[in-house]
């Protein structure tokens, strides 16, 4: 599909018009964070593009914190602008879990089908970004309908799906350019971001080495790092790949699908009392086994996409990458 480009003010005007038809979410910056907000005609021009990364992981649009999965819901089509590559890659694993196999999660499926995802290049890096360590490019390559980047006051739009192309045409702007675009500038920027990430994370082991380190790690290491863990579950809530949930019962045989995590006590406890994850350090270790051993074995997909959010979110100051560096240091 050929790319499109449009001046940023026209793009904003187009988006503002489309608010009548769609719920459009895009990153807005506040003092300490950048996060998706439902746009209003007044906030369209405040959208921040090409910056890592919204606090909320993309999964929340398809797998909400709390969702009634018995009642029928009819929602307006959503457009999510500004998904970073780490979050788009995470959808690979989530799609395999919720859409594949014998049982189809129709709520997740519906949300995936009815959401237009616009991914963006990260043209800057943050302290804990480390996607390239796991072989992920810092720009959208798949799992989105449009890839967006801004330079020279212009919005470059590369449609990746028919749904994406249709959305671009709905912008209905006269000066929407469609045809060959010279991407040399963007490619150079991408390369420089990639290099910065590589240098920034040069001592961080890749996923294969991490896997080995996790398997060989002594309990003492998990115990040491678990000392400041308070089992709050923030690391899992904010993680773009963590998929665990609990079905909560409501009158009328209704069920609420609610985010849950192996980091909470009693996550695996059975009625008779046994609990394989009774000890806090076992729960911490389980998180690393899940991400670097079990999920790759079960689904052939990595379950950490290097977004760094769990490091930023941890009130116990547990740094995933410090743990990984330590468990791999003698390999």
């Amino acid at each position: 599909m050929k790319p499109y480009s449009i001046y940023i003010d026209k793009w904003s005007q187009g988006l503002a018009k489309l608010l009548q038809k769609y719920d459009i979410y895009a990153p807005i910056k506040h003092e300490n964070y950048l996060d998706y907000e439902l746009l209003t005609p007044g906030s369209v021009s405040a959208v921040v593009y090409n910056q890592p990364k919204p606090s909320t992981p993309l999964k929340a649009f398809f797998f909400p914190v709390k969702e009634n999965v018995v009642r029928e819901t009819s929602k307006r089509t959503k457009v999510v602008i500004g998904a970073p590559s780490c979050d788009l890659q995470a959808l690979k694993l989530l799609d395999r879990i919720f859409l594949e196999g014998e049982y189809l999660d129709t709520y997740y499926q519906k949300a995936r089908e009815e959401t237009i995802v616009i991914g963006t290049d990260c043209l800057d890096i943050q302290e804990h970004c480390h996607c390239t360590t796991y072989g992920i490019e810092p720009y959208p390559t798949e799992n989105c309908d449009i890839s967006l980047a801004i330079w020279d006051q212009k919005v470059m739009l590369q449609p990746l799906t028919a749904k994406g192309e249709q959305f671009i045409n709905e912008l209905d702007a006269h000066d929407l350019f469609h045809g060959e675009i010279d991407f040399t500038d963007l490619l150079q920027k991408r390369e420089s971001v990639r290099q910065r990430l590589k240098i920034h994370n040069q001592n961080l082991p890749d996923n294969e080495k991490t896997r080995e380190g996790v398997i060989k790690a002594e309990d003492a290491i998990w115990k040491k790092y678990a000392a400041t863990c308070v089992s709050c579950g923030a690391c899992a809530a904010i993680c773009p790949t963590c998929h665990c949930f609990l079905l909560i019962d409501r009158q009328g045989f209704e069920k609420i699908k609610n985010w849950d995590t192996c980091q909470y006590p009693a996550f695996e406890k059975v009625a008779a009392g046994e609990d394989p994850l009774k000890k806090l350090y076992n729960r911490l270790a389980n998180r690393y086994f899940c991400k670097f051993v079990y999920k790759p074995d079960m689904f052939g997909e990595i379950a950490c996409t290097g977004c760094g959010r769990c490091i930023e979110a941890c009130i116990g100051k547990i740094n995933k990458n410090e743990i990984i560096t330590e468990i791999c240091q003698h390999l």
Partner: peptide, 13 residues
């Protein structure tokens, strides 16, 4: 015997 919620390979319990 395991803790179970969804019963169908999604919830992780």
């Amino acid at each position: 015997e395991k803790n179970m919620s969804c019963g169908l390979g999604k919830c992780g319990h």
